[in-house]
Every structure is written in C-alpha cells, then in structure tokens.
Amino acid sequence: MTDLNQNTDFLYPFIEGTEHDPDSLLLDLASSARGKAEVSARLQQASLEEYEDRLRAAGAEMADRFARGGRLYTFGNGGSSTDAATLASLFCRPVRGRAVPAWSLAADQAVVTALGNDVGFELIFSRQVIAHSRPVDMAIALSTSGNSEDLIRALTEARRRGLLTIGFAGHEGGAMSTSDDVDYCFTVHSQSIHRIQESHARLGYRLWSVVQEETQRRTTALLAAGRSDPGGNR
C-alpha cells in the first residue's frame, strides 16, 4: 500500500516555494509571449479585414471634415486614455504625412479633475465637447467594454452637436455598438482587454492611414486644378 503522506510536490511543480531552477519557467514565459503575440496578430488581422470598408468610409468623412477646418477629440479611460493620446498624437504630430488638429480630452489634469470634482466623473468628456466643439469636428472614443458612461455621454453630446462620432469597443461592443449616437463603431471581438487594446491601436493606425490617403488625393487634385488654371488665386 502506498504511503498517503508521500510527497506529491512533483505533481504541482509551480505552486510551492521550493522551486529553484528558473529555466523551465523562462521557457514557459517565452512560449507564452509568442503565443499571445500570435493571438494578437491574428485578432488585428481579422479586425482589419472585418472593418476595412467601414474604416475607409469613416476615414473619407474625416478627411472631408479636416479639409473644412474640423478638429479631432479623442478620449478613453485608463490604458485606453493613453491609447487615445497616442492616436491624437498620430494625427497632430505624424512622423510622415500631413498634421491635422487633434488632442486627447484626458490630457489636461486641471480640466479633468475640475470636471470630475464639480460635475461628476461621467461628465469629464461631454463637458469638454460642449466647450470645444463645432459641428465640423470629430470625436473618437476608445473603450474595451464599450460601456464606459463618461464616453457614452460624450459621444451622445458630440452627436447632438453634429460631430462625426467614432467608437472603438471590445467584447460584445456594449452600449457603444448599439447606440444611435455612434456613426462608426469598431468592436474588436475578444474577451482580453490587452488584446482588444492592441487591435484598437492597429485599427486607429489604419484609420489615420486612410485619412492621410484621402487628404493626399484631395491635395493632388487641388494642385492639378491650380496648374490648369494658372491665373487662379487660391
């Protein structure tokens, strides 16, 4: 008969404190990194393919609005607020291409804390939309749940004021995906907040690329018209 008290640690090599050789852990970690990266890459590719037509349509509308003097506001909470800031920087300080006015509504801590303290956290972005926006402007919200109340309120306010409204969502899309106040909603179908954010970045980059292409097309046409009409004064 076997000893019931025999050491069974070998069945659970990772759950106790006597583990001393990191090599197998390092192998597992490296393998896990590659696996997660592959999941991310596939999700990004699938999201790009699913939304290519909608990204082109949204990008064309944005290029038209930028050409008419429109400004872009981006916003999100937590990590998504930083991704919103990266997206705004891509538009207003691109390494290549034309810069257009854009900024993150989470960037100013004085404004965010003033609104959060005085009128409530759910209004930190919508109050800024009221203050800044004109109908020609654009709003992009990033939320991995699609349900963040402060974002939904801001998108509703933006839509009411005639802005183009774009949402990046995740999971099943949440309120963002069913709201009439969102012109374009790009839901990344994943349950992982990390993988969703990575795809948001890739989709946002694609959207920016479309805006750049459309802007370039307009510029080329404008210059061609100028050449055929040397007396024209633009």
């Binding site: 990194a33 590659r34 997660k36 890459a41």
Partner: peptide
C-alpha cells in the same frame, strides 16, 4: 510574427 524567438526570450 510580432514577437520572435529572441525577443520572447528577452521578455521572459
């Protein structure tokens, strides 16, 4: 591949 073998080792 977004993360290759060497980079995955570095990450680990």
């Amino acid at each position: 591949a977004l993360i290759g073998k060497d980079l995955s080792d570095d990450l680990a």
